[in-house]
């Protein structure tokens, strides 16, 4: 625990927040180039994560295929069933970005999502 705090402090919380926002902006821009991709949750100062669906591809199907490609996302209703009911969707796919993620990994995520959307087209 102490070592973890030392590590985070050596980088600086502000630097981490800035980097995560850059990852978020990059991923948002790239993901939105995919046809029929819709992002759920677009608050201006949201944390570095993106909840999305592509067309009517079920989140479990998308998550399963991405998992097979070595890309880790979370799928399902994220314990927010009332919100999913409100949007009338079975759940979402959610990619979260941390200080340990890279821009290259976002390119892989986007390529993976595109590939899956083609498989289900």
């Amino acid at each position: 625990m102490g070592a973890a705090i030392d590590y985070v402090e050596s980088i600086g919380l502000e630097n981490i927040a800035l980097y995560e926002q850059l990852l978020l902006e990059y991923a948002t821009e790239k993901l939105l180039t995919i046809p029929d991709l819709k992002i759920y949750g677009t608050a201006q100062h949201k944390a570095s994560l993106i909840s999305f669906l592509v067309g009517n591809i079920h989140p479990y199907d998308m998550g399963m295929m991405l998992d097979k490609m070595g890309i880790a996302v979370r799928t399902g209703h994220h314990c927010a069933q009332p919100l999913m009911l409100r949007y009338n969707i079975p759940g979402t796919v959610r990619a979260s970005f941390g200080m340990y993620n890279t821009f290259d990994e976002i390119d892989r995520l986007v390529a993976g999502v595109l590939k899956v959307s083609q498989m289900f087209a």
Partner: peptide, 10 residues
Amino acid sequence: YKADSDAIIV
């Protein structure tokens, strides 16, 4: 038996 699911892989 007859069955269905909302996710295609399932």
